[in-house]
Design a binder for these strands. Structure first.
Lengths: 271, 271
DNA sequence: TAGTGGTCTAGACCACCGA
DNA sequence: CGGTGGTCTAGACCACTAA
């Protein structure tokens, strides 16, 4: 239980960026918690980095020192740091050391107003179910789900709005053969209040992976009207196939978004 | 060096999906190789899975057995399997075991012809440099790079084609202050033959992360002409900010794609 | 040459799952 | 209950980097 905040501040030129902090100031581990030690450490460090207490460029001590400052073994400390590397928060180089990564700017990319902005601006997104029921699988959905065209599927069309304006039309197809997803598994009320993915999880479906394709095309007259856009406006399209942890296709969705008010953002780490 | 392909085929009902194979049939480790043992194992397993030698649903032995079949310690075997979990190729459940995941279908999503299809169809992509030089940073690029508007930047516009038709116009801005990227670092010839990212790596830049925003809008008259599309056609847009391993912004790109012939595909693992 | 992270080992105990 | 993966420890040697 010894955890004196040892401060190493040797003579000579001041260190590049901080180093007056010690892990003990930032991380406290609870050995009685059911949360794994490495995860406690990783979370604490992530919080500290995101809060700026470990600023960009901050040089961390080597993993052996850190480990015994916290009273942990080296592998455990290491696992915590690997977690942060995977998240892109720190960089480690053999023979060099570990430094905190510069936070990404992100928000400078918002050239147009985004869905997230609308949500952040206080307007909660709302969902309206336009249709819901069992219907014969169209060719597109049948191919995605790997079944015969015409097989009955849960079929639903939802309109997603934010800030009082429609943003997206989402069409989803789900097989009726999965446990917990028999006919009648979905209701308009639940879909509008709970959301599809939460309902799936509640039904015992474990989402594991998804493939998405993002494209664009011009809106049809009907789509322009539905999404409150000009005729022939550009739409973002997204098709998604979602799989559960046994590799079964759980859902196929084909969605269109009003491109003037919506865009997709992604962050990638080194390939 | 004992590596007999031990086969476990107990009495009773035939196992669900395979189990007549052993790791020894699929993985051979070379302790003299500089390649880490866990990585050798992970690669061999990945290859076997993707080749179908370990079919979807295949149940792997527990990690202790696997480890000593290969003459490895449990942590090393474990690290190999964690690698495969991260790649989404296997699923592990405590108290249950490890199984090979169903391969994703992917290709059923190609509703429209994609860039990849064109490349796969034999037409190599080609790049034409439309302009290249130093220019004052426009507001958009200055914001993304975190510098003052008007700062001189490497500025380049490239036209990417496939199957003899233009597909994308890519506009990139790069600071001149990074080591190896002074004025004159880029030439038309190198860009057309080598590609921007490869040139960056050669200049000693280590790409680490990127933020992307994908949207859509209608083409201007000039863009329609350049990309060989109808007037007002839908375009996919993508802005990207790339960072090096010190968190410095390396590049800002703003690109437009002919949506009738291009789309983005992504695969996601459980969040 | 000194210090760093990368890899590897051989144990241990535990939480969870299904029969 | 037995078997599984999840966590943790305390060492060891090595490859790489920088001074």
């Amino acid at each position: 239980m010894s955890r004196q905040p040892v401060r190493r501040e040797p003579e000579g030129p001041p260190p590049a960026a901080g180093s007056a902090l010690t892990l003990g100031d930032v991380v406290v581990v609870d050995r009685n918690s059911p949360v794994p030690l490495y995860y406690q450490v990783a979370q604490a460090l992530q919080t500290a980095i995101e809060a700026g207490r470990l600023p960009p460029g901050f040089r961390l001590d080597n993993e052996i020192q850190l480990a015994d400052e916290l009273g942990l073994s080296r592998p455990t400390m290491r696992k915590a740091m690997e977690y942060l590397v995977d998240k892109g928060l720190i960089i480690r180089r053999r023979g060099v050391g570990t430094t905190v990564v510069q936070p990404k700017v992100r928000r400078s990319l918002q050239l147009t107003s985004l869905y997230d902005d609308l949500v952040a601006a206080g307007q909660e997104p709302a969902t309206t179910v336009l249709s819901l029921g069992l219907a014969a699988a169209p060719r597109e959905a049948a191919e995605a789900l790997g079944i015969a065209t015409g097989t009955p599927l849960h079929t639903m069309v939802r309109l997603r709005s934010a800030a009082g304006r429609p943003i997206a039309r989402m069409t989803n197809y789900l097989p009726t053969t999965l446990p917990g997803l028999g006919p009648g598994a979905f209701t308009v009320e639940a879909l509008e209040s709970t959301g599809l993915y939460r309902m799936l999880r509640a039904a015992g479906v474990t989402l594991h992976a998804a493939d998405e394709t993002i494209g664009a095309r011009k809106a049809t007259a009907q789509e322009s009207h539905l999404l409150d856009e000009a005729r022939g406006a550009a739409l973002l399209t997204m098709q998604r196939v979602a799989y559960d942890d046994r590799g079964r296709v759980v859902e196929y969705g084909s969605h269109v978004y009003a491109a003037s008010r919506y865009s997709f953002s992604l962050s990638l780490l080194a390939t």
